[in-house]
Simulated assay, not measured.
Amino acid sequence: MGNADLRDLAVIEEVSFDDLSGVVAVDAHNWLYRYLTTTVKFTDSRAYTTAEGEEVANLIGVVQGLPKFFEHDLTPVFVFDGAVTDLKSDEVERRRAQRERYEEDLAEARETGDEVAIARLDSRTQRLTDTIVETTRGLLERLDVPVVDAPAEGEAQAAHMARHGGADYAGSEDYDTLLFGAPLTLRQLTSSGDPELMDFEATLADLELTWEQLVDVAILCGTDFNEGISGVGPKTAVDLVREHGDLWAVFEREGYHVEGADRIRDLFLDPAVTDVEVDTDVDPDFDAARRYVTETWEVDAGEVERGFERIEEALVQTGLDRWS
């Protein structure tokens, strides 16, 4: 959901990459979308458009984004979304309608030649098409980067892997991993500088809440699955849950109501996830990966070569470190 209200409640600290190592279960759609929009915003479209007119800016984003993991002794496992729950359909529809408005504004900006507006709206109209998802997976396969298909929410699966030993961290720019119970979440993995570490147990201790109560707070504030209660912000929600004990008591005593609250609660506390075993010994075929990006999908080699070099250099150094 990317519930920004949780930012005010979560225990989050900036950490140094030097203090991190291990496996990160990355919410793939979240990570990929950020690199996609950044690439579109700052890269000439001719660099990632094929002769048939297909745009694969994602391939540039992936190659430029992966080095950050390997250069800092982190192995990413990319977790892709599965089926979208019907409770999320309203949010999906809202985002679709918003993107359509942006597309209308973009068309108008192109007609008037407003280059500033075009640059701004180009990134806002991006979406993860089937081609983008398929080509991303094709590149990750050639680089031998592990991929996991979630039954439903990618963040839920990433949190499950972090909670039950399949990964050391979840990785997401949103905050849902906290509600899904990920012990540690790395944020700002798509930004320059060091990441942020969001701590689940420290958050519960700081707020003096249980996991269930934290989810209740989120429901009161609003999630991707429901509108929040008007006038109830994060601090008020915490106070209400502490005072009354749980969501149902808050509803009863304050006269509030959230449609489908029981199902929403279960989506966070008992989501659709699967146990997986992932081979994290990465052994890329760089020649195949380069050909896939620059020949099969006709991406400008100059936009990706340094990224490939950085990945290769990092993995070579990692191999040397293991033998030293």
Rank of each mutant, 00 (worst) to 15 (best):
V133I: 12
V133W: 05
V133T: 07
V133A: 06
V133D: 08
V133S: 06
E134H: 13
T135C: 13
T135H: 13
T135D: 14
T135Y: 15
T136C: 11
R137S: 15
R137W: 12
G138D: 14
G138L: 14
G138N: 14
G138F: 15
L139Q: 10
L139D: 09
L140R: 08
L140K: 02
E141P: 13
E141H: 15
E141Q: 15
R142N: 12
R142I: 11
R142S: 11
D144Q: 12
V145P: 15
V145H: 15
P146K: 12
V147T: 11
V147D: 07
V147N: 09
V148D: 07
V148E: 10
V148N: 07
V148A: 10
D149P: 03
A150W: 00
A150D: 02
A150K: 01
A150L: 02
P151F: 00
P151N: 01
A152Y: 07
E153R: 09
G154S: 12
A156G: 01
A156M: 00
Q157P: 01
Q157D: 04
Q157A: 07
Q157G: 05
Q157K: 02
Q157H: 02
A158F: 07
A158E: 08
A158N: 03
A158K: 08
A158I: 02
A158L: 08
A158V: 07
A159Y: 01
A159F: 00
A159V: 00
H160C: 04
M161H: 08
M161I: 05
M161D: 05
A162G: 06
A162R: 03
A162V: 03
A162E: 03
A162L: 04
R163T: 01
R163V: 01
R163N: 03
R163A: 03
